[in-house]
Design a protein around this nucleic acid. Structure first.
Lengths: 260, 260
DNA sequence: GTAATAATTATCATTATATGAGAAATTAGT
DNA sequence: ACTAATTTCTCATATAATGATAATTATTAC
């Protein structure tokens, strides 16, 4: 355990399910002496990445809230896409959850979401939540834009039930890539269906997707063209805005660099 | 530069105003050789705390979005208070912004906010934003629950215009503490007024506040009693829920510890 | 209030890691 | 294909992390 990993390993223990840990628990879990953990935890408390809770428990610190805000205001994908989610939701023919998602390591992460207030079911798609790479339209619209060695590496990390399953997945990916959009049914949440388009910007290294999720019960075939039209329109719009933001950033850096 | 500080110093360069940096810029800014910064940045990219953007720029990584979510679902203050902000907003006699805030180092940070859709002005209070410690009702309702040496230390970090200013602030703090609520006008945003009550839980180390912010133009004296009644009611309610969450956590840890 | 227990910090010899200057390799721009 | 910028690599040296143990400081229990 060395470098940043030392800190990351501790942070990674904290989850929605288990959000507070004592030093002794961390120490046991990481098989590292408690004196070492005490020292490291103290450092992270000073930096506000952890904070002491009641008893001898520690929880994640407010630094994450601060940096999360900075991302909200500065990440091109979030900045460009966030404002459109509500509009997209309002133009869909039936109530929906609308999601911007992107690659996060070997998973997909939702980075912005808008849930229509009248949407009944709960979905797994909420900002910050990690989602499986190979299930759901949201994920597929991301992975379908990745090719070659990188795709192979990502796919090899997944546990397919059989080689047949894997080949079917790759075949579906190919045909979706041709069509330009994805559709899946109940792969992530039972009773829900998802439609998605890719969002990308090579210059900014953005590989993402825009998706709408509906209740299967609400859905009629006649809705389909409207859904695709909305996703396509807004998808292009988001990409356009990402590009504008990119130009802004470039200009800004040009200015600040020439001042110095 | 050692330990976690090494990483923190780099992260602290990223702000709303300047959200992407090259290695060379970081290197200059921290007066550290670029080969060292390249190594550190690479580590942080691996951990998803940074990510490479276009050109040779880097920006904050998605890890912050992930951990922010975990806090949203687990932090007792956010969990207990978030759901009440909208209700508080709806019961206020005029449109308002409603805020949960807490201490963050030597500042105050907003950890949850609900802005009535019809609220016209922009406020400085948004989740994750750092606010001054000594201005605004939101901050005062927090600092007024701190006493003794800790208060002294915090106050000494602030730049008061004069000793008189400082003494007046301390006097106001004292009288607010007695009254049990705070009121300020235009201290943070011109044209806005703020009302706030303290939120605390000793066991959980929570020192926070609940506040409502209004347009001065909308405000009539007859609104005052309703505003205070709402804040007091919801303040107590939030504290009650924090306590319930505390009991839940205790029970959960008891269970998981006895299983092992 | 005090004893007992748990949590946290301090110490320090040993071990491991970070540093940074420069070379080498890779990538991007034209 | 060339050039410049960016990034990685190498390695001797400096610096910092480790962890067993002791000392101190909260917390609990009675």
């Amino acid at each position: 355990m060395s470098g940043f990993q030392r800190y990351k390993k501790i942070l990674d223990l904290f989850s929605e399910e288990r959000s507070s840990w004592t030093v002794l628990e961390i120490s046991k879990s990481l098989k590292t002496p408690s004196s070492t953990i005490y020292r490291i935890v103290r450092e992270m408390v000073t930096a506000e990445f952890l904070e002491s809770a009641s008893g001898s428990y520690f929880r994640l610190g407010p630094a994450f809230i601060k940096f999360n805000r900075i991302i909200n205001f500065s990440d091109p994908l979030v900045r460009a896409g966030q404002p459109f989610l509500k509009k997209l939701s309002n133009e869909n023919p039936i109530t929906s959850v609308n999601v911007l998602a992107r690659l996060y390591g070997k998973n997909v992460m939702c980075v912005a979401d808008y849930k229509n207030p009248s949407f009944k079911n709960n979905t797994s798609y909420q900002r910050g939540k990690l989602m499986p790479l190979i299930y759901g339209a949201t994920s597929r619209a991301i992975i379908m834009q990745i090719t070659g060695k990188r795709l192979e590496n990502l796919i090899n990390l997944e546990n397919f039930k059989s080689d047949e399953d894997k080949n079917n997945f790759l075949k579906d990916l190919k045909s979706d890539r041709k069509k330009g959009y994805c559709f899946t049914e109940g792969q992530v949440d039972k009773g829900l269906i998802g439609f998605a388009v890719s969002i990308s910007n090579k210059k900014l290294g953005i590989e993402a997707s825009l998706s709408s999720i509906f209740n299967l019960d609400d859905f009629l075939l006649e809705h389909e063209p409207i859904i695709y039209a909305n996703l396509t329109t807004y998808g292009l719009l988001v990409e356009k805005y990402i590009n504008e933001i990119f130009e802004d950033i470039k200009k800004y850096h040009h200015e600040t660099n020439s001042i110095r």
